[in-house]
């Protein structure tokens, strides 16, 4: 390990059609090894599901891919950008990766439209009008055009999730990560949502 970190890391040869490449990724919490040498390659346009019992490190893995957690060893390359300890790379990667959280984590003080407009305005410097057009496009795609002025507290679980998806899509990411997307929903909603993802995938 020390040899790897002391040398300037050689660019990892990742084929252009690989979106996410993990090699030997390690993550420790104290003495507990949450991730032990994970190798993974996800191609462009590929959809994969990671299954496992709770506590097996699924969330940790996903959170390492967009830098919410720092990995302790191994290498992560997302869209040709390697995640290193430099802050800049994490920001670069996050521009390319959207994430939908288990509990959606919508901004409670902003309505559905404003939730979607926040990142494009702040990160890409879009004007209010441009951001609104973009946000409306994605909110319509998840069939929420009628609820754009509602605050998260007024939306149902399924609607909240669709806002979360639209919010992630507004950054026009090339990769979308879902962390247990249906566990916070009741079964009926989770069926409906899986259907809506399939539709969404077709629409892209």
């Amino acid at each position: 390990m020390s040899a790897l970190t002391s040398m300037p890391p050689a660019p990892l040869a990742v084929p252009a059609d690989v979106a996410i490449a993990l090699t030997g990724v390690e993550k420790r919490y104290g003495t507990h090894r949450a991730l032990a040498g994970i190798d993974l390659a996800v191609g462009r346009g590929e959809r994969i599901v990671i299954c496992g019992p709770s506590g097996s490190g699924k969330s940790t893995l996903i959170r390492c891919i967009n830098g919410l957690e720092r990995h302790d060893g191994g290498r992560i390359v997302v869209n040709g950008i390697e995640l290193t300890s430099e802050d800049g790379t994490v920001q670069d990667v996050r521009q390319e990766v959207g994430m939908v959280f288990q509990h959606f984590n919508l901004f409670p003080h902003l309505n559905a439209l404003e939730n979607c407009m926040l990142a494009p305005r702040l990160n890409r410097g879009l004007s209010r009008a441009q951001a609104e057009t973009l946000a409306m496009k994605h909110l319509e795609r998840v069939h929420l055009a009628d609820h754009v002025r509602k605050y998260p507290g007024r939306l149902s679980g399924g609607q909240q999730q669709r806002v979360a998806i639209a919010r992630a899509l507004c950054m026009e990411p090339r990769i979308l990560l879902f962390d247990e997307p249906t566990s916070a929903l009741d079964p009926e909603w989770s069926t409906r949502c899986s259907a809506s993802w399939r539709n969404w995938r077709r629409a892209v």
Partner: peptide, 25 residues
Amino acid sequence: RGIVEASEALGVSQRNIFLHVKMPL
């Protein structure tokens, strides 16, 4: 914490997270 993480995942800078998410809340 989750709200802050959501902003981080959207690639919002720490300064903007403070100004537009943390402070308003």
